[in-house]
Amino acid sequence: MADQALLRFRLDRHSGLPIYRQLVEQVRQALHLGILRPGDQLPPVRDVVGQVAVNPNTVHRAYRELEHQGLVEGQAGRGTFVRETLPGADDPHDELRQHLGEWMQRARRAGLEDEAIDALVVEAKRSTARTERPRSTAGAEDARQMEHTGRTGPTNRRKGEERR
């Protein structure tokens, strides 16, 4: 079954990106490159799990995120299928990429080497970091939950992207 999969996933354990986000990015990249096209089936969760030894919940979460982004749709009993493609020109991060390129040229002209540039980037990332990490879902539909004792969450708890 894995031989027929159109896409092979890969995990970067040291990237700092949550695994489900890595899977989302790899599908998005495949859409950009035309490796996956509308109508194609995403590898079934079972097969992904057999390939990259991740918790099935993580794959479910990635596919849900892609569905949330309008890129795929799950068809009960049949699998998850690509709905939309992602042409490069429509990449929502195009403008950011362009600005970054301009900034990078200015940094180089100012004489900054890679290390100094990296340090500036890290500092900027940290100063804008979300102070929230996504929480596990507390929904009834996901059977794999820890039993809570009915306490309410802390005031800073927000629903957001799930980590896995």
Binding site: I19, A53, V54, N55, T58, E132, R133, P134, M146, R164
Partner: peptide
């Protein structure tokens, strides 16, 4: 453990220090 587990138990000094979904632990 991290890619495969959704929960974590930390045992230390013969008792449970942590028992939590990993997402919540990190959050």
């Amino acid at each position: 453990l991290e890619p495969v587990c959704d929960q974590l138990i930390i045992l230390s000094a013969s008792t449970v220090q942590v028992a939590s979904p990993i997402d919540d632990l990190l959050a």
